[in-house]
Design a protein around this nucleic acid. Sequence first.
RNA 1: GCCGGUAUAGCUCAGCUGGUAGAGCAACUGAUUUGUAAUCAGUGGGUCGGGGGUUCAAGUCCCUCUGCCGGCACCA
Length: 648
Amino acid sequence: MSQISLTFPDGNAREFPAGTTPAEVAQSISTSLGKKAISASVNGAHWDLQWPIDADAQIAIHTMQDEDQALELIRHDFAHVMARAVQEIWPDTKVTIGPVTERGWFYDFDRQDPFTPEDLGRIEAKMKDIVAAKEPVTTEVWDRARAIAHYEELGEPYKVELIERIPEDAPIRMYWHGDWQDLCRGPHLQHTGQLPADAFKLMGVSGAYWFGDTSRPMLQRVQGVAFKNRDALKAHLTFLEEAAKRDHRRLGREMDLFHMQEEAPGQVFWHPNGWSVYTTLQDYMRRQQRAGGYVEVNTPQVVDRKLWEASGHWEKYQENMFIVEVDEEHAREKAINALKPMNCPCHVQIFNQGLKSYRDLPLRMAEFGSCNRYEPSGALHGIMRVRGFTQDDAHIFCTEEQIEDETRRFIDFLARIYRDLGFEGFKVKFSDRPDVRSGSDDVWDKSEHALRAATTAAGCDFELNPGEGAFYGPKLEFVLTDAIGRDWQCGTLQVDFVLPERLDATYIGADGAKHRPVMLHRAVLGSFERFIGILIEEHAGKLPFWLAPRQVVVASIVSEADDYIREVVAELQKAGVRAEADLRNEKINYKVREHSVGKVPVILAIGHREVEERTVTVRRLGEKQTAVTSLADIVSTLRAEATSPDLL
RNA sequence: GCCGGUAUAGCUCAGCUGGUAGAGCAACUGAUUUGUAAUCAGUGGGUCGGGGGUUCAAGUCCCUCUGCCGGCACCA
């Protein structure tokens, strides 16, 4: 038997027989390590304790102290334990896949009857039994034909399909948790007793298509979360409770920002407070755009289908458009129009008016464009995903050579705005060609290459999002997250060689000939609706002072203060601060509580003392202590705070 | 759009196996002039999401439509 050399993290190397497993290595170090070990890293790969090592390697033995490996194994083994529990309770359930997720795992099942919320408790109890039984985990590599035959015999068609999808040269691993067996790439724990039985919770059931394919039957997905110990689980559940308090749908009501109702699903009724946030943000964006070299335009809402046919939307996007049929009495046929789902075709119409010269490029055309899209009902989500919304949209008409410069310029532009609005970090995703698309592969090659090069040149790190581009071109997505960590695309930059062609946009070049411009579709906020939703959740309703709808409430302690309070409010309003008086016959405690719940950033309390001394007592949201300040001082302080960051 | 859940007063929720609606907060009225997260008392308010059905009787059971919630799919 040949020997191999295994090098430990401390640099020491030892000889072992070839085919030694990490379990044996751990055992050889100490019996307690042998027991505590959960997995290993072999040349950086996460390695099951039972997998043999055939050649010299770097090795590290992992225990529950190693956070990353421990969590992966805990979640992955819980997935198997849950699947086992489900099949023990309902033997006719077919198993599919059960991967680890960010905070836990899910497992998709095929079963006639739906899982009920009550079933989750039963499954949890059974899972705890399996953990308590300390079922050993064992593994074998099987021959492909044997594995397929095995699952065909068991009546597990999804597993057969999975095996068929495994690459030819990859091993087909079988795992057993006690008697229960599953196809799995591993690694896994030594036995189920290593799982923390008090640190997991089943979170719910939902539907999910097999391999995300809508043409396949829908499976039932049971989701769970798991952590290293009970405290970590409790911390996560607390986090979820706190996140629920930051939910923009809840804060929207509590802060009286907006509402939505059944008669207009996916559309927002903005209340005065919410509209104040919206218009403040819009004013800010308008100043930014002017400074950034954009011209602002405005285009029609209802546009004849002919334009959508020309742009390609009729073909590629029709099911997402609100169609408007107008029945004119004397017309030969019905006029068919559509509410615009995007602004781009209209912007090209403006570009096409009169001759454009290469000297006009880049032409940056912006619009706060109201769009309507018939989004699938299941996609609607508060004001984050709606059917009627306004984009801070712009199209940059430029030459191919200008793409890189414009992209870099845009990324700087966006980053500065996000910073102003309180977002320090954001994700960037690069989405390339989707299956359903316009334009030739040549054009796509060119677009993807140009955008990628420009992004790299701008020093922007991005992750690849394969096949997620728009139908007319690749895109960069600037992604922000909501209170519970869901990603939302806000900003975007999309290269488009297709639309200028389809709508015949041209400019006269230096050579006197006609040329085709490139269009860059871009948005910073994405839509005001979504962005304000994110803004609310990001700040937990405590919007930056300059954006807060009600910035100051001046509250009376005694009614003799009313006249002075009116004066204070008038002074503040004159200084450009959104201030109002609260003269109700209520205790100051009551008023403080109510305005704190309403997320008013500053409460000024006025009693006898303040009237006499011409001062105010300042209480800031989230702070317990108060401070007495002269009227003149607070007016100048708050005037400065009310100024939007670009005007400082 | 799909799977599951859900819909009771402005808000948060109660209403057991069917017998014709209740609480707290809010609102309104009155008292209280109050010092930093809920002052006290009284009053009003619901065709139980819409439609249909079963039944002597439906908030409760069934069907259906709609909205909402969680995922999937789709996407700013």
